[in-house]
């Protein structure tokens, strides 16, 4: 009799443990889920070439494309768009160049992350080629020309007039070194 309750209790315990484990997994599942949502809504574009669905040039309207670039980290380097802004028609093929200059005395391995303002515009800016698709290696004192080829889809909402394409360049470092550097920083802070 008392055994029957014990059995039921154990059964409930098992079920609840499963729920707990599933929810722990769900926390992790939020990572790919979030990436997928961002990809679909164009918030954070993943680093791969897009396909252009509609290549018809819409000459009836034009959009101001702004270019912006940032570099992070302690190294002496710069990333600068060759032009600050350009007026383009949706559907038109746009070539732009960013200049990466490493004034430091060490070679740098770098990765650029694209970002859009307003974010939803990211859905309509299709990058056919971009230096952000691969890591860039730049020797000490070297200058690199980094190209981007993109198309603004004609389906972009009519109320979007300005789109900012911004890159942030990060240094890719060796794992061990990096953790050590962080510890040091944390200790100070």
């Amino acid at each position: 009799m008392s055994n029957s309750i014990n059995k039921r209790n154990r059964e409930t315990f098992r079920k609840l443990t499963v729920i707990t484990l599933v929810m722990f997994g769900f926390g992790y599942a939020l990572v790919p889920l979030y990436e997928k949502i961002c990809e679909v809504t164009g918030i954070n574009d993943l680093a791969k070439p897009d396909e252009v669905v509609n290549a018809q040039v819409d000459t009836s309207r034009s959009i101001v494309l702004e270019f912006d670039a940032n570099v992070r980290g302690e190294i002496a380097w710069e990333l600068v768009p060759r032009e600050r802004k350009r007026k383009v028609h949706p559907g038109e093929l746009v070539h732009v160049v960013f200049d990466l200059k490493n004034s430091s005395e060490v070679p740098v391995l770098a990765q650029a992350i694209p970002s859009y303002g307003p974010q939803r515009a990211g859905l309509y800016v299709k990058k056919l080629d971009c230096f952000c698709f691969t890591q860039q290696e730049i020797a000490a004192g070297e200058n690199l020309e980094l190209p981007v080829v993109l198309v603004v889809e004609p389906s972009i909402p009519r109320d979007v007039h300005t789109v900012t394409l911004s890159y942030t360049m990060f240094e890719i470092e060796g794992g061990g070194e990096r953790t050590a550097a962080k510890e040091l920083e944390g200790g100070k802070g």
Binding site: L16, I19, T20, L21, M23, F24, G25, F26, G27, Y28, L30, V31, T179, K182
Partner: peptide, 20 residues
């Protein structure tokens, strides 16, 4: 609690692995 606490455990675990 059973549904929410494991998610927090996941979040702080991710922070931990990001750190180290």
């Amino acid at each position: 609690l059973v549904a929410a606490m494991p998610v927090l455990a996941g979040a702080v675990t991710m922070t931990l692995t990001d750190r180290h």
